[in-house]
Amino acid sequence: MSDLSGTATGAGTGDGRPVALIASRMRFEEKLLLEAFRRRGAAVEVIDDRTLSYRVGDPAPAWRVVCNRSLAGTRRLEVSRMYESFGLPVVNSAATVAVCDDKIHSTLVLHAAGLPVPATAVALTPAAGEEAVRRVGLPAVVKPVNGSWGRGLCKVNDADAVEGVLALKESLPSPRQQLVYAQEFVRTPQRDIRVVVAGDRAVTAVHRTGEHWIGNVARGARTSRCPLTPELEDLALRAARAVGGGLLGVDLLESEDGRLLVNEVNSGVEFRGAAVGDEATALAIADAFAGHVLSRALPDGTPPGVIHGGELLRTGVPSPRTPPAAPPPLATAAAGTVPSQESDNP
């Protein structure tokens, strides 16, 4: 039994600074991640994101890297912002989380990268929503801008349903909830594809099949293995790169008219479903995740640095915990790279 707010030590690697695993819940995924870090000899400090606060200008915690597994989208973004501001590498980066957790932003970014996405239209008010739905055609799906687990998705088949959904949005209290994000309803073989990505690697792919048109595991969809073809791998990795990279769940739709579309990219990826009940697969995914996080860690002996767009630009920034009299070498900092530790991924 474990107390979430503490340090679990493995054999220890590098200069001994732990990985910070920041989580809202110790779910299946977080427990496997914790074990994967420990198997790699990394010390891990586990932090409940609900306990966090900071003062601007605070010294950075003595961590090598932050693995952000916050369950709440709002806190997920703030965790990445907070620790990047301290000069610590965070996976996923604030830039990635900001894109993925906003459907409008992600669709714009994916489209700009030349990736195929469902026909999408946006209206800034419910009053303009009818035109947005008309632009994608009926049936359409109206989605919350920052929903997850299939919550709040509305399939609208006719003008009456559109009127009802827009009236409902008009009554919602938040301006963000009143944004209208409408997509074509993509007819699929009653399934979608989830590709799990860790850095530059597509780790596994599964079909998610359900009775409901929302093919989400949280809504009861079943998963089954999906061959990770070069086409799927290429599309998933291009989508992952477009949103800034990291530990991601790329959701693809195979339309009945032969298109392969990027539906969305998830920054708080769960992988219990992607393991399809196979322990070895679950462990392999967790290990790939841990490997990617460690590949982003501060090099041994280097203090926090300057993070921009999720990248460590340089290290050696003086802070109250890094006396300026003894700065570390900056030779590797100029290259802006971190030694990769991904070669031993499964």
Partner: peptide, 11 residues
């Protein structure tokens, strides 16, 4: 009754 590896924040 909780499993031996149950931790804080688990459901």
């Amino acid at each position: 009754d909780l499993a031996a590896d149950t931790g804080v924040t688990e459901i």
